[in-house]
Design a protein around this nucleic acid. Structure first.
Length: 432
RNA sequence: GGAGAGGUGCAAGAGUGGUUGAAUUGGCUUGUCUCGAAAACAAGUGUGCCCGCAAGGGUACCAAGGGUUCGAAUCCCUUCCUCUCCGCCA
């Protein structure tokens, strides 16, 4: 959530920027509630102070009837006021949570996703000299994807991935873990992009795939209606991305400054209900209820938050370049960056079979919006405690990147060339 | 799933109704000493919220939520979590 102090100081700005993101928030009502609750709180605390003093006086000998009577009266008064404060506080919190994070200055203002700005294009789509096939057409003769039997067993939007496609997935995982664990790669990217962050490598993590309601809500990432599967019996949700169990990892903790930056590369199967997308992307493995994902998550001190974000975008580009895929970078507009985001970037890879760029990566910078609710703080050397900044970004969503590789590396006779950087992890083979 | 034990500050660990926001030990920070370090000694060392320009003051928090009481870390209820044994299991 947003800092209430900031909202008090900048009500008009908050209203304006929220509107730019497509959120109507009643700042006036929020501030009114804020005043009301603070007045009540002060009253309650005054009464409590009196109760404590009285209680102090009583602790020596036997309390007199007069004292007991006074105590009972205070108890009643406190009870009444607390009963008013409770709902007030609840309503206030509810309203406060509707306020989105403020977009950074350079985020383009836009009301639909069409107003995202193409920041750059890298690489040229290959001229195949034949009509390139869609990845599911390439998969069929080689029996790499079986969606029909998956539908029989699990329903639509599930698949059995088989054979060389599976080996390719594990090759990508190896390649990513190796790359993000390599300080020299990071150092180069930091220098090229003139960033002021450390070259500390990413630590690989296999996170749990389920999480409880309380931390999920605090992460501002729970989307119960459209995205997230619930395991009713156990108050657990299936994660919709590894970032959900990664960003919550330090929930309610104060961490020493020398731990930072904390960089994780997580690998997890992710689950999404995809409600409201019926009929969309029904072919192939672009939009599945279940997919595997490599996700970066970074916790940093406030002053390096933005540079960490730039670094993650640079890493995404580097990874895609290494695979030799043409792509474009989209700076997302205010409407599209998402509620907790201050800035957001998408990377879209060219899919020859579909003749368009499609989103394969996203990078989210949340400033302290996410950590305020998650209560993740850093204890500075100076003794000061601050909220950390959080960043998350896709390294690879495996389904989509496998599809992209298949379509971009297809040959006229229906084979798939293995990108060079992946060959060491595929026994040196050159094609599927 | 059955039986039992337990969740206290950075850590270990005391505390079973008021003198405990919390003993003690360790850790950490600072200072003294030293050329420097170690040792020793001294002081300090949780988080949130509210009031305040600040200094400071108040309030809440001993897993979470509720209750009893003039007063709760301590008593009662519910939930969560951890550990041990048995059962089941990749």
């Amino acid at each position: 959530m947003l800092d209430i102090q900031f909202i008090r100081d900048n009500p008009d700005l908050v209203e304006e920027k929220s509107k730019q993101k497509g959120y109507t928030v009643d700042i006036k009502q929020l501030l009114e509630l804020d005043t009301q609750r603070r007045t009540r709180l002060t009253q309650v605390e005054e009464l409590r102070a009196r109760r404590n003093t009285l209680s102090d006086q009583m602790k020596g000998g036997k309390p007199s009837d007069e004292q007991l009577e006074q105590g009972r009266q205070l108890k009643d008064e406190i009870g009444t006021l607390e009963a008013e404060l409770g709902p007030l506080e609840e309503h206030f919190q509810e309203l406060l949570k509707t306020v989105p994070n403020m977009p950074l200055e350079d985020v383009p203002v836009g009301a639909t996703e069409d107003e995202n700005v193409i920041a750059k294009k890298v690489g040229e789509p290959v001229d195949f000299g034949f009509k390139p096939k869609h990845h599911h057409e390439l998969a069929e003769p080689k029996d790499l994807i079986d969606k029909e039997r998956a539908a029989k067993i699990s329903g639509s939007r599930f698949a059995y991935l088989k054979g060389d496609l599976v080996l390719l997935q594990f090759a990508i995982i190896q390649f990513v873990m190796q790359t993000l664990g390599d300080e020299r790669v990071l150092e180069n990217l930091i220098q090229e992009n003139n960033l002021n962050v450390s070259a500390k490598p990413f630590t690989p993590v296999l996170p749990p795939a389920m999480l409880r309601t309380e931390p999920y809500v605090a992460s501002a990432r729970l989307n119960a209606e459209e995205v997230t599967y619930k395991i009713e019996q156990d108050d657990l949700w299936l994660n919709a991305s590894a970032e959900h169990t990664l960003c919550t990892m330090y929930w309610n903790e104060v961490l020493p400054e020398d731990m930072f930056p904390i960089r994780y590369i997580g690998y997890s199967t992710s689950f999404r209900r995809e409600a409201g997308t019926y009929g969309k992307d029904t072919e192939g493995i672009i939009r599945m209820h279940q997919f595997d994902k490599l996700e970066m998550e970074v916790f940093s001190t406030p002053e390096t938050g933005l540079d960490e974000h730039y670094l993650m975008v640079a890493i995404q580009e580097y990874l895609v370049q290494q695979l030799g895929l043409p792509y474009q970078i989209l700076q997302k507009c205010t409407f599209d960056i998402g509620k907790p985001n201050a800035r957001g970037v998408d990377l879209e890879v060219w899919f020859p079979g579909q003749q368009k760029y499609r989103e394969t990566h996203t990078a989210d910078f949340m400033t302290d919006y996410q950590s305020r609710d998650l209560k993740i703080r850093v204890k500075r050397k100076s003794g000061e405690t601050q909220l950390v900044h959080t960043n998350d970004a896709t390294a690879f969503a495996l389904g989509r990147i496998l599809a992209a590789i298949m379509e971009n590396y297809q040959t006229a006779d229906g084979h798939i060339i293995i990108p060079e950087v992946l060959r060491p992890y595929m026994q040196g083979r050159e094609q599927i």
